[in-house]
């Protein structure tokens, strides 16, 4: 057999055509299942909130009852909605920038130096990473209340600046960068911190992009911890605010459905633009777990 023979002979191709078509159909069906809830939500945004409560969501839209009043309300009379939106934007930005800065700083210490208690401290990072937050929320809740941080954004941001998962990921990435860079910097008279900020951070761009996406998404969607911390309605973030609309009396499902749909748009746009980093960020843990 010649080494340059094509992978698939024409006969192969013919026999594989049904398989190819079958596979395409299977992929498209499963993809449709994943996308159906989005379609249902989009359809829902053109219906009355009262109708949604009474009849639920499905995939059909009765043109006679379809209208854009929900969208008009969203942009003209949605009460606190854009306040929540702004709060979420601000909080997400602060949290992402802060977490990336602090966590990469810590990770650099773990990756580039040898020091006493390094192993012990790093085991603590790993342990913290493997305990679900839900199991630690109550002690943290008691603690932030005792520190007078209840109802503050500080309580939401501070405990997660040195974020175990992000530290772990950055450390893995940094161990791939040769330590000779440090020596080169020292010879040039750069301080230890200057080496990090001026020489190493620029090399971390791909890792930073992946973690920015991951942390940004987690922060934008964060619900449980802000639910425990926040009290004043004017500080509510999008998920918290939307949740307040989900009352048993359901008096504002029109805003709920259109507001929920609109809250997806920033993340969907980012996903379309930076899909690769999303997938890298979300699956980062498994690379060397």
């Amino acid at each position: 057999m010649s080494r340059r023979a094509p992978v698939l002979s024409p006969r192969d191709l013919r026999s594989r055509r049904p398989a190819t078509i079958g596979m395409a159909v299977a992929f498209l069906v499963v993809a449709a299942l994943a996308l159906i809830p989005f379609w249902a939500m989009l359809i829902g945004t053109f219906q009355d909130g009262d109708m949604l409560i009474r009849y639920g969501l499905n995939l059909g839209l009765d043109p006679a009852n379809a209208h854009v009043r929900n969208y008009i309300m969203l942009f003209t009379d949605s009460g606190p909605y854009f306040g929540w939106f702004a709060n979420s934007l601000i909080l997400t930005t602060v949290q992402v920038v802060g977490t990336l800065l602090v966590s990469s700083f810590v990770a650099y210490g773990f990756a580039m130096y040898d020091f006493k208690f390094k192993t012990t401290l790093f085991i603590l990072v790993v342990v913290l990473m493997t305990i679900p937050f839900e199991m630690l929320m109550l002690p943290l809740y008691v603690q932030t209340n005792a520190m007078g941080l209840s109802d503050s954004y500080a309580a939401i941001v501070l405990p997660f600046l040195a974020q175990a998962g992000t530290i772990f990921f950055f450390r893995q990435y940094l161990t791939g960068i040769p330590r000779e860079i440090l020596e080169a910097g020292r010879v040039d008279g750069v301080s230890e911190f200057g080496i990090f900020f001026r020489l190493v951070v620029p090399l971390m761009k791909p890792a930073i992009a992946a973690m920015a996406i991951l942390n940004g998404m987690a922060s934008w969607n964060n619900f449980l911890w802000p639910l425990l911390v926040l009290r004043s309605p004017q500080k509510y973030t999008l998920p918290i605010g939307l949740n307040t609309l989900l009352t048993p009396y359901g008096n504002n499902y029109s805003l709920l459905i259109v507001g929920a749909f609109f809250s997806l748009i920033p993340i969907l746009l980012l996903f379309l633009a930076f899909q690769r980093f999303f997938i890298e960020g979300m699956t980062a843990g498994s690379v060397k777990g």
Binding site: P37, F223, L238, L246, L264, Q275, F278
Partner: peptide
């Protein structure tokens, strides 16, 4: 397409599925 659901918050997912399971 398979990845998009993971982008949604549990709040948005809950709202939609609550209405679909009505």
């Amino acid at each position: 397409a398979m990845f998009v659901p993971a982008l949604t918050s549990v709040v948005v997912a809950g709202i939609v599925f609550r209405l679909m399971f009505s």
